[in-house]
Design a protein around this nucleic acid. Structure first.
Length: 411
RNA sequence: GGAGAGAUACCGAAGCGGUUAAACGGGGCAGACUGUAAAUCUGCUGGCCUUUGGCCUACGGAGGUUCGAAUCCUCCUCUCUCCA
């Protein structure tokens, strides 16, 4: 490769690395490092950390995972760091309350599922999967204290999330201050050249640069990405807020969830989740801005795109067909689950009892309410009497728009 | 260590001796409408029952006062603020 070719390649890679990013800290020095790495044929070490505090990754995580994949495709080394040690602290980032620390078993369970989920988006065979307990568990207290001398309390309190909590008189525990140090030290231990993250991680990410410097390393470049808004269209996507689309969601519900985002959120979703199809979705989006095309078909395109990426084209097609049929035309889906109800000599069965038995309602009171509200139909006929006694025949019961079950009574 | 303030349902937040399963808002669920599980409007939103009614559980924890307590008293736990 000639020098000219190499500098074009550096430019090409930088372009990809910048795509969709909010900030690229340390870009200048990084450019030099990238050039050197290309010259020496050495891949960059690209770190992405995740806190295994929940068992599921969601589309919000996928934004940054896709970026990691871009690095992988460019021939660099993706490092997926599972913060099993840090999960025991609880990341305060973006929080307005203390994150509960998890027990070790729960964390390990979650960590396992993470790798499987990441495999849906990256070629995990060439991903370096690491746990920060590897180096944190054995760190001597004296070393840890030295690590914590890298920043002042005043500096910590400048952080937006802490500042807000402090102003609002919401508790901030001392251990929450420790999180950024650990995350920063991870970059030292992993010899990271680049770290990726959401904008809410900016403080922790930049702390990595400082700590690397003080440990005599080249500071990593930091590339931050926008946070994806959740299904509500306001809050950032998060499982605990209940507004997320899980990577492990099945194709049908994933499709439906995407269809349920507010129209206003579509633009951002298209921009952040359209990797690979950037052009088409954005063109459609701008046409929409000019009053051409309709929001619904764009939303369909977005939903199909997202589901395709995670579940494949076939599943996405099926999900789309099912959405059109069940939601838009109010038809019965093909794959209605069958539920068998054992009699146990307890006949006759009243409707509200059957709803609970068939897991169509969480409690009998709730079941009664649903029936009274006109949410329940038997064999497509609306029924409003919860006390209705069911004949012991197989029936199709529907609750609301999309909860179905074929109920069979077993003697 | 001292002095104040506070802890209410999924979340935020009223209530400050009875008519409070607890106002109001958010969230969730349902119905109507629709271009979608968007938006908008309406209703519901602790559990169990033989249901225009009955019972059980619930207002940080444990006791107490009272015919009756989320509401008053005592102790405890936790948080916030100020002082040292």
């Amino acid at each position: 490769m000639t020098d000219a070719q190499r500098s074009r390649e550096v430019e090409r890679q930088l372009e990809i690395m910048r795509e969709g990013a909010v900030e690229f800290y340390g870009e200048e020095e990084f450019t030099k490092r990238l050039a050197l790495c290309l010259k020496e044929g050495r891949p960059l070490r690209v770190k992405l950390g995740m806190d295994p505090s929940s068992a599921d990754l969601h589309l919000g995580h996928s934004v940054v995972l896709m970026k990691l994949r871009k690095f992988q495709e460019l021939g660099h080394t993706p490092i997926f760091l599972i913060g099993d040690f840090t999960a025991r602290i609880g990341d305060p980032s973006g929080r307005n309350k203390t994150r509960p620390a998890l027990d070790v078993e729960q964390i390990q369970q979650n960590a396992k599922t993470y790798v499987a989920q990441v495999a849906k988006m990256l070629d995990v065979r060439s991903v370096e999967v690491r746990f920060n307990s590897e180096w944190m568990d054995s760190m001597a207290p004296s070393d840890f204290v030295r690590l914590c001398s890298q920043a002042t309390v005043a500096r910590m309190l400048e952080r937006d999330d802490f500042a807000k909590r402090y102003a609002a008189e919401i508790p901030i525990f001392v251990h929450e201050f420790l999180y950024p140090f650990v995350q920063a030290y991870d970059s030292v231990a992993l010899e990271a050249d680049v770290e990726l993250g959401g904008t809410d991680q900016t403080f922790n990410l930049l702390m990595g640069r400082e700590v690397q410097r003080s440990y005599g390393r080249e500071p990593q470049a930091v590339i931050t990405h926008p946070l994806l808004v959740g299904l509500d269209g306001h809050e950032k996507m998060s499982k605990s807020l209940g507004n997320s689309v899980g990577i492990t969601d099945d194709a049908v519900s994933m499709y439906g969830k995407v269809m349920s985002i507010p129209d206003e959120a579509m633009g951002e979703w298209c921009r952040l989740l359209s990797a690979g199809e950037w052009g088409r979705l954005v063109t459609d989006l701008s046409r929409l801005g000019e009053g051409e095309g309709d929001p619904m078909s764009l939303k369909h395109a977005l939903a199909a795109h997202i589901v395709t990426r995670i579940h494949g084209e076939e599943a996405a097609g099926g999900a789309q067909a099912q959405f059109r049929s069940v939601v838009q035309r109010k038809e019965v889906p093909d794959d209605v689950p069958s539920v068998e109800i054992g009699m146990g000599g307890r006949e006759p069965f009243k409707l509200f009892e059957v709803l609970v038995e068939a897991k169509l309602a969480p409690s009998k009171s709730e079941a009664r309410r649903l029936v009274k509200q006109g949410a329940v139909s038997i064999d497509r006929e609306r029924v409003t009497d919860p006390m209705k006694v069911l004949k012991l025949e197989d029936v199709l019961i529907q609750v609301g728009k999309r909860r179905f079950a074929r109920v069979k009574f077993m003697t």
